[in-house]
Design a binder for these strands. Structure first.
Lengths: 242, 242
DNA sequence: CGAGTGATTGAACTTCATCAAATAGCGTGG
DNA sequence: CCACGCTATTTGATGAAGTTCAATCACTCG
């Protein structure tokens, strides 16, 4: 686990927490929130660090406090597919099973709030709202996995790239999306985008420049994207409200 | 809802139920099982019938008692992707949300045991084991959705078809798989296989005959498949225990 | 037997992957 | 500050995999 730093816990650890209003903590009563707070261990990873590998034992469940985590699976011959990307506020790790079935890697510097598995599961068993909250989150993840299956199986390279940009734009807008323009930084490299979309780096790059020449987006520094009209991008993505 | 028959409930409705030992009913105490039994309504669909459509209100949660159900999503222009296939014992429907996000269609004649949503959710809220059971099932579905994402994004047509056959063979063996041969009937048409694998009918057909000429499988009546050595098939699928 | 559906086969074409360079950014150290 | 070297990204040329279009074949059901 290269580069993992374990920050010393402060007295009031949640007071200034950036995700205090979104994460699972919001689904608890005051008392239970206290119990959760007591077991939370901050952990910190550098960009590129592996948080856990495929098929290994990982003793924690965690909240992503800041940064971006990519989840991926690898075929025996090395082909890779990213199966999910998690942002601040997302829950990381699989409850009820201590063996991982995919890899989690920090894409940017990442802060996690880690809960020891046994203690966390005990809290889930003792609490009412928490299990339901986690369940609902899992169902949402299932929905988005299924949407992604449509993308992977049935959409063209251009549509894939457009939809990816649209997804990031939406994430970035934080729900209250202004209908028209958007400007954001891509959290993933072209290679990661390719692994997420089931394409090659070259194809991703070509489609990006194509969207650029078509006037749908502007690109600065490879990572900064400006979208003229999110509606156009949505149309290029094959027409989905999602 | 064409062709849906609602069978009159018998007095002891679960006594002879084929999935009594696998379905969610096994995760209940005697008393709760009684409550569940009281609300179960048998329903019956013919092959090709729509159970529910995309984005509509569906007032039931259900167990698949017999038959095969395909779950699919459709793009505005008609392209279709099958996102899951359910067999006897599987749970159908999304708890905590009464609006569907995919279509469910009977592929063979199907028997469901339907629970009215409101009453079922009340039972879930009142029971301890049931929510966890449903949660675990959802997590398993999430896992297989993610495995399928790898297939859709990163595997070749030959691998896709081989893996599909392997999956059906495994389902059919019911866990206690004999390592070597297998013989089974495909629940899906070539067109449905294509929609499941993100391919065209023609490509599926070509890969099937290819696997046949390679001696990995034998085909009778288009739907009956004999696998020589399941290990070979697994190798052709890109090498996965899964 | 004939119609109709589902599956296979063939040929031309598209899209994306592959291989190979060239270019652009970025951080480092002089 | 600039040159250097590294990596990420773009661009080009070619090829292969899979799609598309068009028939043909096979099986089932009247």
């Amino acid at each position: 686990m290269e580069g993992v730093r374990e920050t010393a816990p402060k007295t009031d650890r949640c007071g200034g927490c950036a995700i205090r209003g979104v994460a699972i903590c919001t689904s608890l009563t005051e008392g239970d929130r206290h119990a959760l707070r007591a077991m939370g261990q901050p952990r910190h990873y550098g960009a590129g660090d592996t948080i856990f590998g495929e098929d290994e034992r990982f003793g924690f469940l965690a909240n992503v406090v800041s940064g971006v985590v990519k989840l991926s699976k690898t075929l025996p011959d090395g082909r890779q597919q990213i199966i999910g990307v998690e942002f601040a506020g997302d829950f990381l790790g699989r409850i009820y099973r201590d063996r991982t079935s995919f890899r989690a890697e920090a894409v940017t510097p990442v802060h996690l709030c880690c809960y020891p598995r046994a203690r966390f599961e005990a809290l889930v068993a003792a609490t009412r709202g928490l299990e339901e909250r986690l369940f609902r989150d899992a169902l949402d993840e299932l929905d988005s996995a299924r949407e992604w299956m449509v993308l992977l199986g049935r959409q063209s390279a251009r549509e894939k790239v457009a939809r990816f940009l649209q997804m990031i734009a939406r994430r970035n807008a934080g729900g209250c999306g202004p209908a028209l323009g958007a400007r954001f930084e891509l959290p993933l490299s072209r290679a990661d985008m390719a692994d997420f979309l089931g394409l090659t780096v070259e194809t991703v790059s070509r489609q990006m420049t194509r969207l650029k020449t078509e006037g749908l987006i502007r690109i600065s520094n490879n990572r900064i994207i400006e979208v003229e009209d999110v509606g156009d991008l949505e149309a290029a993505a094959g027409g989905w409200a999602a």
